[in-house]
Write a protein that binds this DNA or RNA. Structure first.
Lengths: 337, 337
DNA sequence: TTGAAAGCGCTAACAC
DNA sequence: GTGTTAGCGCTTTCAA
């Protein structure tokens, strides 16, 4: 019942604790027979090493903290799954911190700045301030960003400009010219640049195909299905409504679909809609969308932090993952009837 | 750069390390001025305690492992969120293990059986074998089950019999009599009894309202939207098809909706459908369903394991959380036209 | 190849 | 009220 220690194993195997330790750490400087004896003793006693002690001795925690916002967001979950996968084979534990309000922010910040609590930090889809970066630097804490940006930190991001462009090009190639774009507020300081980048991609695609950008066709609002629905209603009630809408997220695209249904506008016959993210629901509503490598971003981020702990910070700092177009049932050629 | 220890703080404050420790652990046997000195020294040096050492000394890990299947399942995420919330205020870390295949099962099992790795284990929506229970018992590892069952372990479950009954009663009260039930295989050894309980509730509701159970109206199959669709098609092609279908999960209910759409059967005019779980998608497709207290189950489970670590195992072993009926747009009175 | 012993940073008797 | 010290379980020199 009371935990078995290396000492008891040593006694039973009639060797010193140093030898037991060597066997356990697969040092080769041990006679096969000694090794046998020790292994047998371990088994008999049901010994399992005390990781706390090991970690204290080695000055490592074998834990990595992951800070992430809103565990409700499907995209965050997918990234987390990737991280978990990267850690599965390692001896590192992943400790997630879900930050859903400012108070929690304080709590996790304190934890993160403690070298004895974790060997590294993974920040997922959250903005990071200069002072935080400085703090990490000061205590020499390895950090990797997933879906966030800072020039001095290792980061895994996707090419959102390319994504916005890809979505828009898909519609252009189908023959659309009146293409609208709806998104969150693009200038919110709390926000990552991803949505702004998607908009840039949209503009660039239009430009390259020499389609003039119509400011009336751009809407920004709070994130959310309902808010997106309202924005879409405004667009669809224009004198010359768009024939296609690029939404900067699937959730918003679904809001657009709501609006179309409400106005009895058939998708994709009368209106094409494309989303962004490829969340689960995208499949359910048969939404054409831009798939972000969410899972992969987690996987790469997980590998990166592990590697950085092992070998230090390596170039390149920025790893850009490609997006891809998933064509489903909400986009088609415009209806010229 | 090299971590500050209690020793350096002691030197700077010109006291002994014991005093520093006392201040840090808010023992009251310290003069206010001494306390001030120590606190100042801590601040100057940017000291933060080494948790590894503390934990080794105290024989506690301040970590709890959570084993859960398929982090893709929305229900699992919700429970996890609740657990995280329960831990937020505590000094305990939550280490999640996502088990998606047998190999991973082996890895996590080894970790779980190590008292030095965690102070407790939380098992979420996973079956647990007698030998595992025995193993936990042997090493005195506190365990709490969420959405799983074992007679000797603390567990948070929902009253699935009541849930199945509530769903069925809702339909009965709308005036339905030909009510079908589809679910996973009810006798699968890998499965929790929840689905079987929902079926029991269904039977009980029928019985109480003296509606005869028609075996033709019960279908079991693999879990999944597509599989559910097939089962629904069989039901709807019966000579006397049901006017309402109870699905044992929302995913399956959505499959039923697929089948109805395919057969041009209008929901809820010609067919009522009710699901179970109230996952996010339920809202999207406007599905009437039974809401499980998923988040709450995580919260309660988290509190329970913390409490068990603190005070030992307390009665009652089983905590049953209530379900509730969420009426949306897929149920209505039967069409007698 | 093996053993003895120091010490990781902390807490908690126990002395003063 | 404060200091001294043993020791949590382990790894790793250093000696033998």
């Amino acid at each position: 019942m009371s935990p078995v220690t290396i000492k008891e194993v040593a006694k039973r195997a009639k060797v010193s604790i140093a030898t037991v330790s060597r066997v356990l750490n697969s040092s080769d400087k041990v006679t096969p027979e000694t090794r046998e004896k020790v292994l047998a003793a371990c088994k008999d006693l049901g010994y399992s090493p005390n990781l706390q002690a090991k970690r204290l001795k080695l000055g490592k925690t074998h834990a990595i903290m992951a800070v992430l916002p809103f565990l409700t967001l499907p995209s965050i979950i997918e990234r987390l799954r990737g991280v978990l996968e990267a850690f599965a084979a390692s001896e590192f534990d992943l400790i997630p911190f879900s930050v859903e309000n400012p108070q929690e922010r304080e709590i996790y910040l304190a934890s993160l700045s403690n070298r004895s609590r974790s060997d590294g930090v993974l920040i997922i889809s959250m903005p990071i301030t200069e002072s935080q970066v400085q703090r990490f630097q000061d205590i020499g804490m390895p950090v990797v960003l997933i879906d966030s940006h800072h020039r001095t930190l290792k980061r895994i991001i996707v090419d959102d400009i390319a994504g916005g462009k890809m979505a828009t090009n898909h519609l252009l190639e189908l023959g659309h010219e009146r293409i609208a774009f709806i998104s969150d507020h693009l200038d919110s300081p709390l926000h990552f640049s991803s949505m702004a980048d998607r908009f840039k991609g949209y503009r660039k695609a239009l430009e390259e195909k020499q389609v003039k950008f119509n400011p009336q066709y751009q809407k920004q609002g709070m994130h959310g299905r309902e808010e997106a629905k309202q924005m879409a209603l405004e667009l669809l009630n224009l004198a010359t409504p768009p024939t296609a809408i690029v939404a900067a997220s699937d959730t918003q695209a679904i809001g657009v679909l709501d609006a179309a249904r409400l106005m009895n506008i058939s998708v994709p016959r009368q209106l094409s809609v494309i989303g962004y993210d490829d969340i689960r629901d995208a499949d359910y509503v048969n939404l054409t969308t831009i798939k972000q490598p969410l899972y992969e971003s987690g996987l790469e981020g997980g590998k990166a932090i592990l590697q950085q702990i092992e070998n230090g910070l390596l170039e390149p700092l920025e790893i850009q993952l490609p997006v891809s177009l998933i064509i489903r049932g909400t986009t088609a050629a415009p209806n010229h009837g």
